[in-house]
């Protein structure tokens, strides 16, 4: 474990906590894409299949359970909670997320470390996570005013994978130059998708003005 990976995991955890607090405190999920949240549940389910078969560390197991539990509860709130589900922007959250999932699955069938169920599904989760934020970014462009919590959520979500990129560089130089193209390139694509959001987020933060994404 290195400081970059720990910072990445904590940033990721913080982003999810912020979203969960926003939904619970305001009883509203306005501006949040249910499609993206559902894709994240699929990402965690397909990535943590070895949760009960391979013990890596107490930290690893705990974090996996926390990520699974929080992401599933967010989807539950947005789908079934009587008050929260009324605030879901159903007519604006129209991104066809299975158009993202299917190519990722096909790509995982073609390009993977080894052809086993666990490994192909893990690879699928890596590819899917890279594009899972797209429905949320599209929704942000459509929704006129973005509330601070939602802006912070998306920012931290993007920042965590950027920290993971630094973690991979660090591990490459300190752990016998292990090359891991699949997570590296996917992580690069994932972080790049946030580039313009990062630009507008930092601009709004510096000018102390409301976050607005150009349509």
């Amino acid at each position: 474990m290195n400081v970059f990976r720990l910072a990445g995991d904590m940033t990721h955890l913080l982003s999810i906590i912020i979203l969960l607090l926003k939904i619970r405190a305001t009883k509203s999920c306005t501006g949040i894409s249910l499609k993206t949240q559902e894709l994240y549940v699929i990402v965690f389910l397909t990535r943590y299949l070895d949760l009960f078969t391979k013990y890596i560390s107490f930290y690893n197991t705990t974090m996996k359970l926390v990520f699974l539990g929080t992401s599933i509860s967010i989807v539950w709130y947005m789908r079934y909670h009587k008050v929260v589900k009324q605030t879901y922007n159903k007519d604006q959250d129209t991104f066809r997320h299975y158009f993202l999932a299917i190519p990722c699955f096909l790509l995982a069938l073609l390009i993977h470390h080894e052809f086993t169920v666990i490994e192909v599904l893990w690879t699928f989760s890596i590819y899917l996570e890279a594009v899972a934020i797209l429905p949320q970014l599209v929704l942000l462009q459509r929704s006129r005013n973005i509330d601070n919590l939602t802006g912070n959520y998306v920012f931290l979500l993007g920042a965590y994978r950027a920290l993971y990129l630094v973690n991979w560089v660090y591990r490459y130089f300190t752990e016998n130059h292990l090359v891991r193209w699949i997570p590296w390139l996917s992580g690069l694509v994932q972080t790049t998708l946030y580039a313009d959001f990062f630009y507008y987020y930092i601009k709004s933060w510096k000018n102390n003005e409301k976050l607005q994404l150009p349509a």
């Binding site: 990976r5 990721h12 690893n60 996996k64 470390h113 891991r180 997570p183």
Partner: peptide, 10 residues
């Protein structure tokens, strides 16, 4: 143990 690249990460 067969070291899976990246399998010790979240």
């Amino acid at each position: 143990r067969h070291y899976y690249p990246g399998k010790d990460e979240l």
